[in-house]
Design a binder for these strands. Structure first.
Length: 111
DNA sequence: AGCTTGACCGACC
DNA sequence: TGGTCGGCCAAGC
């Protein structure tokens, strides 16, 4: 097939595919996704999400420290509330994800 | 070819 | 809890 109008790079497709598998109420970090794919790194995953994340549950792919996506934290928090994702209230500042409980390793058996 | 940037991460203090 | 630092790796300029 010829390159009509630039399709999604294969790597991007794989990243989005993983993002779609994350169960509601759970999250994976950028690094987790990269590690699961065994390809690329957190920053590559971050780039893919920045460019094409809008097509998938982007709020389920987060930074390792559990800080909601800057600029979209309100929308993200709405989703977390709606799907009962474990949050942790911090003394100063807004809520963060409770990574210990919300983190998903990508294994369907651990849902 | 070299330098900067970015939806990052872990170690350290 | 929070800030810095070095490492990371692809893209842009």
């Amino acid at each position: 097939m010829s390159r009509m109008s630039e399709q999604l790079p294969e790597y991007a497709e794989r990243v989005l595919e993983v993002a779609e598998r994350i169960p509601p109420g759970r999250v994976m970090t950028y690094g987790d996704v990269a590690e699961w794919l065994g390809e690329g790194g957190p920053r590559q995953v971050g780039r893919v999400m920045a460019l094409f994340g809008g097509a998938v549950p982007w709020w389920r792919v987060v930074r390792a420290d559990g800080v909601p996506l800057p600029g979209s934290e309100l929308r993200a928090l709405e989703h977390y509330r709606a799907e009962a994702t474990p949050l942790r209230s911090t003394p100063a500042g807004g809520p963060r994800l409770d990574m210990r409980r919300a983190r998903w390793d990508g294994d369907e058996a651990h849902i």
